[in-house]
Amino acid sequence: MVLDTFLITGLFNVVMLIGLALLLHLQLGLTRIANFGVVGFWGVGLYTFGVLYVRVDWPFEDPIQFVVCAVLATAAAGLCGLLIGWLIADLDVDGVLVGTLGFATAVAILATTEQGLTGGARGMGGLRFPYDSGDVAVNELIWLLVLVALVAGILAYVWLVHRAPYGRLLIAIGSNEPLARSLGKPVTRTKLGLFTITSALMGLLGVMYGVMVRFLEVSSLGIEVTLATVVGLVVGGSVRVLGAVVGVLLTVGFFDIVIQSYLPLPAEWYTQTIPLMREVLFGVALILVLVFRPLGLLGHMRRDRLMKRIHGG
């Protein structure tokens, strides 16, 4: 049985945001890099892929065309991560926040103004799945499963990072950067490496999204993606691996799937009221969590328990 297209799209967004929140967990939750430009890196992947896939006359067909464009788009997002990471490396939290937000804004402006490449405000079509089952709903379902596999891979990576010396180093840098430096840790290089890899993966998630929607709109480069990612992560608990998963499920999942799919809301609400209501509810959820449970619903990292499980004692 093939799922309803609306539900597939909703699930796709939830899974994609879980992936973004997991990557932000590594940046913000562990290393305290306050990246508020998630949508910028995601958008670089999305638009680079779209432009390469649609505008370039490749000498080969799908799926090789998709793979080549996806790899290049991911690399472009990673390169942006390297550049932005280098620029913000020595800034305090406020500076990082403004710098990354500025980058995301620049990406949105570039996508809007470069009409020849991106179609500007009119958007750009021509994207398609790198396979064809003959049924759009089946294609979408398969793509959703591919995304689930990708995000499961990201989850496994994050889980491993928590148990590895690398994770220890990220937490150390996030807790006290000068102290980590004084212990001989290559702080800047570690932060740059992390930011590059996570930004590249954010770009890859943008690629996945582009194929799913098959039409690029500059409106998708607004603050909503970043906001949903940050809210999900903070609500769930930014220092816990599962915080990203639980937080996104309880916010985006609950609103986009449960409320929109199963509540009998008036049809006219879907154009303006629901998107606004979504932002308001996310804001309220964020405030309530910050006031009553500042470390998120899953609370503190409880690394002591984790280490006890791993090493005994």
Binding site: I171, A172, S175, N176, P178, L179, R181, S182, V239, R303
Partner: peptide
């Protein structure tokens, strides 16, 4: 040299305050 390079040579520094990583266990 930078701090991490100096530390690599064998200079250990114990600051007066905030000398531990609070989120890590003692073993970590």
């Amino acid at each position: 040299l930078r701090a991490h390079q100096s530390a690599g040579l064998g200079v250990g520094y114990v600051p007066q305050e905030r000398g531990v990583f609070p989120d890590l266990t003692v073993m970590d």
